[in-house]
């Protein structure tokens, strides 16, 4: 069920694409085996608003990305590993550049991880897994991600470690909790599960999709105004250096795929024009920056 994103009618600043550094693929569509209560695009087993991307579509865009000088590739959904082409897609991508896949960690198959281990070993590039987990206890995590998921995610993390991967645990700050407590809890949990130097990334929630119902939506003052761009480094915003390919065309970023206005065109070449920040979720990106990349995008120095 798509809830159209409200568009602001007040003046909104425009952000030009500085360079297409990160090319995203919504390989999993909006289909997910889980139904997390904070999901910003309300993914579920029944949400077919966006479908899977097939290998050929990915291949075509990878080829187009070479001439554009893309630096890194990211894969998201829904759950990417529900796409039966996912292993082949990552194998292909690692011939072009570094690949990162955002997964819930609950559906890995032994054979896929073996193939991906071999693909990363054969490539000069890194394959990163970002595994979502929303609490360092079963009670906290399962309240958000669903009953029994804590144990399944941990098993997925151990499975990745067994194959020599070093996953980045991606944690959404779902309550007004301090990040330090979350961080310490996750470090401890990972260490007791055999992850000696765990990688942890804590993210703010996006108050759209299911999250708007779970907690609250955006308030009226939570918007990006032209004044807020004065002295602000635009490179902190994903729209200044990324685009995402979906089965319904190329969109500006992984967050705004449900907004018609965020559809930039059919091809990458069409999608390189500037984008106007008319969506309230842009406010979160402006406040926090570096939401979606593996490592913080560094600002002007």
């Amino acid at each position: 069920m798509t809830i159209p994103l409200p568009i602001l009618d007040s003046a909104a600043p425009q952000v030009a694409l500085d360079h297409l550094d990160d090319l995203w693929f919504q390989v999993g569509g909006t289909v997910c085996n889980l139904e997390c209560s904070h999901c910003f695009i309300s993914c579920s087993p029944r949400n077919h608003t966006f479908g899977f991307l097939d290998l050929e579509t990915v291949r075509r865009h990878l080829a187009a990305s070479v001439g554009l000088g893309v630096k890194e590739y990211y894969f998201t959904g829904g759950e990417p590993f529900l796409n039966r082409d996912m292993t082949a897609i990552l194998e292909l991508t690692l011939r072009y550049g570094p690949a990162t896949v955002l997964t819930n960690g609950t559906v890995f198959k032994e054979d896929w991880l073996r193939r991906l281990r071999a693909a990363e070993d054969a490539s000069r590039y890194s394959l990163e897994f970002r595994v979502s987990m929303d609490g360092f206890t079963a009670a906290e995590n399962d309240a958000i991600r669903g009953a029994g998921t804590f144990a399944r995610i941990l098993a997925g993390v151990r499975h990745l470690l067994d194959h020599g991967f070093l996953p980045i645990l991606t944690v959404t700050q779902t309550c007004d909790d301090d990040a330090a407590r979350l961080f310490a809890g996750f470090v401890n949990l990972m260490k007791t599960n055999g992850y000696r130097k765990p990688r942890i990334k804590i993210l703010p929630t996006l108050r759209i999709g299911a999250e708007a119902d779970r907690q609250r939506g955006y308030q009226d003052h939570e918007r990006v105004t032209p004044e807020m761009m004065a002295g602000f480094d635009e490179r902190l915003l994903l729209c200044s250096h990324a685009r995402i390919v979906t089965d319904r065309g190329v969109f500006v970023c992984p967050i705004l795929v449900e907004a018609g206005e965020a559809r930039m065109g059919d091809t990458l070449a069409d999608s390189l024009r500037p984008f106007r920040l008319r969506f309230r979720a842009c406010y979160t990106c402006h406040q926090h920056g570096t939401l979606c990349a593996n490592i913080p995008t560094t600002g002007d120095s």
Partner: peptide, 21 residues
């Protein structure tokens, strides 16, 4: 060349990005 504090690692920098730079 474009940013003093940009990290360019071997394993996360595609060759076509280097060509662009």
């Amino acid at each position: 060349p474009r940013r003093m504090n940009e990290f360019l690692w071997d394993s996360t920098t595609s060759s076509h990005f280097l060509r662009h730079l």
